[in-house]
């Protein structure tokens, strides 16, 4: 029972991590209609920046801060230099161009930081465990990720529903011309939205630093999970991204933790472990398929969204 609770917390932590990425991806798609494969690259940039600055200054908080600044800046530069040209283009062009950006960023990262993975320690102040559930000590750092994710979700809710920027974002998501008619500076709005998405990806990367190996390719691995999240939630919906991320995080974590054990109830140990871990590696994709069978547009389909 305690194990289950612990795994649920792990699932939430993973889910909120995915949410940080999915929120940016889905905003950029919902508003600018851009399918950005290079979103994971910003996550990677965040992780590398955090690790480097933390190593140089000795302060993780400075590392995170630097990661936020650098990714937001990188995102806005990429937007102004490349992505802006892609908003009116077909998805195929967007896929290829952002694929090219991945190539470039990955290679630059290899040149700057080398091929060996970097590791970042959990800062001492956050390294302990805490018994939020009596009898089940849980790492403080992972709780922090959950808290940050929840705060970001709340912040995005307020931003989108109660601010002028949010009103423009909502208007843009449903009607591009209308934003133009409002007289808002749409170019600036797009750059800001992209910067916000990049910043959230960078935050995810910085927070992931201490719990994952920081290496080239980390962005792409998590990007595909993020796609699954966004497809499940409904492309363009931040609410959907949150729900999708938590569903995926929980399903994946619980699947990996318990499926081999469940198989062991009916199979001999060796094949049970093999079958269990094989199935666990694909549970979220099965979840996606299952949801798509019933809701081809995801859980929260965005109105007026043209698939093509």
């Amino acid at each position: 029972m305690l194990l289950l609770l612990e795994q649920i917390l792990n699932g939430l932590q993973f889910g909120f991590m995915l949410f940080l990425l999915a929120a940016g991806l889905t905003l950029v798609f919902g508003i600018m209609h851009l399918l950005n494969l290079a979103h994971g690259s910003l996550y990677m940039i965040g992780a590398y920046t955090a690790a480097t600055v933390t190593a140089a200054t000795g302060h993780f908080s400075l590392g995170v801060l630097a990661a936020l600044l650098v990714t937001a800046l990188a995102g806005m530069l990429l937007e102004a230099g490349v992505f802006r040209r892609l908003y009116q283009r077909e998805h195929l062009d967007q896929v290829l161009a952002t694929f090219a950006v991945i190539f470039t960023v990955n290679e630059l990262t290899r040149i700057l930081w080398g091929r060996a993975p970097l590791y970042l320690d959990i800062p001492p102040a956050l390294a302990g465990t805490i018994e939020i559930i009596p009898g089940a000590p849980y790492p403080v750092y992972r709780l922090l990720i959950i808290a940050v994710g929840a705060l970001v979700a709340l912040g995005l809710y307020v931003l989108i529903n109660h601010t002028r920027l949010g009103m423009l974002i909502r208007a843009g998501a449903s009607n591009r011309e209308m934003v133009g008619a409002l007289g808002a500076n749409i170019k600036l709005l797009y750059t800001l939205v992209f910067g916000l998405g990049a910043l959230l990806a960078g935050l995810a990367g910085a927070l992931a630093g201490p719990i994952l190996a920081i290496e080239v390719g980390m962005g792409e691995n998590i990007l595909i999970l993020t796609f699954v999240v966004v497809v499940i939630g409904g492309i363009g919906s931040v609410r959907g991204a949150l729900l999708g991320a938590l569903l995926v995080g929980l399903t994946d974590t619980l699947g990996r933790a318990f499926l081999p054990g469940l198989f062991a109830l009916v199979l001999p140990p060796a094949p049970a472990t093999a079958a269990g871990s094989s199935l666990a590696s694909i549970t979220i994709y099965l979840l996606m398929v299952l949801i798509l069978v019933f809701r081809p547009q995801g859980l929260f389909p965005v109105q007026g969204q043209h698939g093509a």
Binding site: F29, L35, H91, V95, I224, F227, V228, V230, V231, I235, Y285, M288, L292, V293, P296, Q297, G298, H306, G307, A308
Partner: peptide, 13 residues
């Protein structure tokens, strides 16, 4: 069953 960006993401996944 889907099209556009969904199709791209689903084939990838």
């Amino acid at each position: 069953r889907t099209s556009g960006a969904y199709f791209i993401m689903i084939t990838l996944a």
